[in-house]
Structure formats: C-alpha cells, structure tokens
Simulated assay, not measured.
Amino acid sequence: MLKVAIVSDGPYGERAYETISQEFETSFIQVEAPAGMFVDELELEPGLVDRLSKFDLIITYILHPDLTQELVEQIHQQVGWIIVGAWRGEGFKKQLTQLGNVTAPENMCDLEENGNPVFDEFVSRFGRPEVKINCQGNKVVDIEVKRCSPCGATAFVAQEMKGKSIENLPIRAGLKIQHYPCRAPKMRLFTDDECKKEMAANLHKDAFEKALKKKE
C-alpha cells in the first residue's frame, strides 16, 4: 500500500490527513517553523529527512517558504513524489517543480495522472473529482465517489446530492462547495480567493456533468 506523509508547520493538513488515511497508509507530521519569515541558515529537525525517506509520497502544507524549499530539496531524491500544497509565487513554484518529481498545483482538487507510478497511484483516488451517479427516474439514489478532492469536499457534496433531482444537479453540486470551506486561497499570497473557490466549484460541476451523461 502507498505510504503517504503529510507535513505541516501550521493549521493546514489535518483535513487532508483524515480523508487520505481512509485509502492509504498516512502519517501527519508537524514541524516547527522558524521564528522569522526570512532566515540566513536553516536546519531541519534532526531525523526528519530519515523519517520522511520511508514514505512513497510527501504532501507539504508548510507555509514558511524557506522551510518548504529546504525540505523539498533534501528529500526529493529519496521519495517517489512530492506535492507542495502551499506555495507563494510563480518563481518559487518553478524553483520547486524543476527538481523533477515535485508538483505545486493551483488547487489540490486539480491533480491528474502524469505517468509517475507513485503519483498516479495517489491520483487514482485523490485529485480532480470523479463521481458515478445512480438514478431512478429523475432522482439521485446513490453517488459513488471514484476520485475525491484531498480535502474531502467531493464526498461531502456527493452525500448532500443524494435523494435530489437531477435537474440542474451539476450547478447545485458546484454551489455546494461554498458550504465546505476551501482553504486553498489561504495558502497562497496575492491571489484572488474567489478565483480559487470558483475553480473548485467548476471542477465539481464538471464531474457531475460527466457523471450524468453516464448515469445508471
């Protein structure tokens, strides 16, 4: 089974841990961020790299940029893939992703297969939403979540849409995301909160539209 580590230096990552641990062997690792935003010399906690090297895939929700960079640079050659869930600025993103086995998505619910076996195994269950809808007449009787957003929003929306009419179902599914607070905007700097929420809503809307075309 895929072994996943979620690393955080603050308030983010616990919800992803609760969701992902339902499918994969997952550990939540809290690290201490440096006191200041910029530091001349940064040392990782003793034993952290060795501990993380035992995992197949790492997801970081570290908000401190220097800590994120130091961790990713030291660990990326020892694991299958790294997903940077919190990053600041396109230049910083480029610096991380050029390492090769690092992804820094705009939204965690927009992950899709890329050909790497470790990453693809994870994305087979988490990333861009995918659902299967079972209907009786115009009523939704069941929704199977084939691929869930790492935060669990897809499962939340699917549960809320059960028993509802299929009329305008994709639109209502997208709107329902507003009731499951998306934290992605809070992990970016100088970004439009509504743009990120709209992206998540549209991804779920698209997933329900595709599912309705194949409904049973």
Rank of each mutant, 00 (worst) to 15 (best):
E25K: 15
K3N: 14
E216T: 08
F38C: 15
S8W: 01
A207T: 07
K210L: 06
S53K: 06
E90M: 13
E73V: 05
K3R: 14
Q74E: 11
F119C: 01
G163R: 03
A153Q: 09
Q69V: 14
P105G: 12
L52S: 04
N107C: 12
E209I: 09
K132P: 02
L203R: 12
E32W: 14
P181H: 09
R125D: 09
T154R: 05
K94S: 13
P34L: 04
S53W: 00
E113P: 08
I143T: 02
G100A: 03
V131E: 03
K214R: 14
T68A: 11
G13C: 00
Q74R: 12
Q78I: 03
E160P: 15
S8Q: 10
G127S: 10
V123A: 06
A200H: 11
I75Y: 04
N114T: 11
I6V: 11
V49G: 01
D110A: 08
P129F: 03
D56A: 04
A155Y: 09
A104D: 00
L71F: 02
L71Q: 02
Q69L: 14
L212A: 09
G89E: 12
E130C: 01
F24V: 05
A33P: 03
W87Y: 12
K132C: 06
G80Q: 00
K3T: 09
T19A: 06
A16I: 01
L44R: 05
Q95S: 08
N202E: 13
C151K: 09
E32G: 08
V84Q: 07
M199S: 13
